[in-house]
């Protein structure tokens, strides 16, 4: 127990009681508005599935793409002999 004058003043001040508060409603409302960063498992699964499908399509399409010929190549091949 502090017997100094400041200690006595503080002891008197400690007996002060603030007006009752009820912050339950505001606290819950504030928490409801907060959007904690969440990882949506459904969205993650969907994204992973899409990525896998895209990789599969790319795997099949790339060899086909390289084998593709220019459809107009035949038409212009005749012009190859024309002197410029």
């Amino acid at each position: 127990m502090d017997r100094t004058p400041l200690g006595k003043l503080a002891a008197r001040a400690r007996a002060d009681r603030p007006a009752p508060v009820d912050v339950r409603g505001p606290v819950l409302a504030a928490l409801a508005q907060r959007r904690a960063p969440q990882r949506d498992r459904t969205l993650l699964l969907f994204a992973a599935g899409s990525l896998a499908a895209a990789a599969l399509v790319a795997l099949v399409a790339l060899p086909e793409l390289s084998a593709l010929q220019d459809p107009l190549a035949g038409m212009f091949s005749a012009l190859d002999g024309v002197p410029r």
Binding site: P5, A10, A11, A13, D16
Partner: peptide, 19 residues
Amino acid sequence: RAAAAPGALEPLDAAELLH
């Protein structure tokens, strides 16, 4: 005033003064 009689203050006044 508080220095003269620190224990005589009302708690609310003491709290305000200390603050």
